[in-house]
Design a protein around this nucleic acid. Structure first.
Lengths: 235, 235
DNA sequence: GCCACTTTGTGCATCGGTTCACAAAGGTAC
DNA sequence: GTACCTTTGTGAACCGATGCACAAAGTGGC
């Protein structure tokens, strides 16, 4: 294996980098719209809310696309990041569970941005099956496997109630899906090779509450803690 | 400073641990409902989808609440984690932006779970101001400061269009809010001391797409890459 | 064609987080 | 009270990610 691309890129962009690429892409799109031709790591980093050394290291994992003394070509970098993320192809997604959240997701514009297309809506409730939402017919979950095959769905968004999520996930995976975005507040157990991303509103709020509490504790002196912890004053 | 609580706990639970506490809490609540009195780190870890050593280390940051040879008392641990996260108090949250997403969030049941209460809905669009959603009147954004004060809001959920988000965030922060959950696809710039959590559906999808692409690349041999990279065959 | 200036790409030190593996601590049986 | 069993709590090695700081590489002026 003499083949070594400029430095990295043979299997393995750090996960942390992958998570930031969409951020860079968004910032770059804004710059492209404003007509900028090139951008320095410093400017792009500020726009994406990260530090410029980190940005350069992230980009270096894709290859060497900058020009020293100048910066990065905006359009070229957009193309490279898009391709790396797989956004040059069209991804058909299915939303399962058409409650409040599923409905909102189906209608959410930013969802479809660049590369993604909601190709199917499914639900188990006969009362909503047949409804027309965001230009799509809601289909019955019994059709799951057929719909996935027919529409070429490769990413599934789970917006079912918590109680149904694991069961639906199992079926979806059995149907060959290996990428799931889960909104249901449960820990899904899935086989090796299946990627799950979780979005959990309640957890996010709890994390905020933790920090908010710390902040207000600090303001009120923090002395109250001792009262709550008589037995913890040890040694 | 002779005061050293059992080991940790004086300013500083690792951020990664804080992010997992809600997970443990949820698993514990399930166990409590099923009537379990105690649970071992191993069982709880499985339920929360983490490794047991990590779970024990996480819990050790709160104090020493387990009993060797036995495990953890479910109810006691629920109480301790709840208190640590600040869920023993009631948090009033305001949702700003009552589009598809804001509406879904307002109606989303899991949102209100334990400790959180949607106390206000605000929007800039006169067409929706006055609507009644999830038992609340939608108020005009001009009322922002008054509503925050009057209802004791301490956490704000931003569900506005991207273009408005920074401006609204600035106002919210000026009104004294220091905890924001942001659904708008923008990088908010905020002063020191303000906590932002970001939920970005589009980014999650892009990360999934990246991995999905890798998986299918691998299946098709990955040879196609060379064609796309004529100039990258270097040295 | 050379010099001064800019900005990338990266080696290296550092840090936070994860995992292993085991000693310490408690329970139970006899 | 002792011996054995279980499970916690944590020291220490490891791993990935971050950020500094600088050499390398390019541009533009003259």
């Amino acid at each position: 294996m003499i083949r070594r691309l400029s430095q990295a890129r043979e299997r393995g962009i750090p996960e942390a980098t992958v998570a930031r690429l969409p951020l860079y892409l968004r910032a770059l799109n804004g710059m492209s719209e404003r007509g900028l031709a090139t951008v320095s790591s410093e400017d792009l980093a500020v726009a994406a809310g990260v530090n410029s050394a980190k940005l350069r290291k992230d980009l270096s994992h894709l290859g060497s696309y900058g020009t020293r003394g100048v910066g990065y070509d905006v359009e070229y970098l957009i193309y490279q990041i898009s391709r790396e993320l797989g956004l040059t192809q069209d991804w058909a997604i299915a939303i399962i569970g058409v409650g409040n959240l599923g409905r909102a997701l189906a209608n959410y514009g930013g969802f479809v941005s660049r590369g993604f297309r909601v190709a199917a809506l499914l639900d188990a409730d006969p009362a909503v099956v047949g409804d027309r939402i965001a230009g799509l017919n809601v289909e019955h979950i019994d059709e799951l496997e057929a719909v996935i095959r027919r529409r070429g769905v490769s990413i599934v968004v789970l917006a079912t109630p918590a109680a149904a999520a694991q069961q639906v996930a199992d079926r979806v995976i059995a149907a060959g899906i290996t990428s799931i975005l889960n909104f249901a507040p449960v820990v899904l157990s899935v086989p090796e090779g299946v990627d799950i991303r979780k979005v959990d509103l309640s957890i996010e709020l709890q994390i905020l509450a933790f920090h908010e509490q710390r902040k207000t504790d600090r303001m009120t002196g923090g002395a109250a803690m001792a009262e709550e912890w008589p037995e913890a004053v040890d040694l």
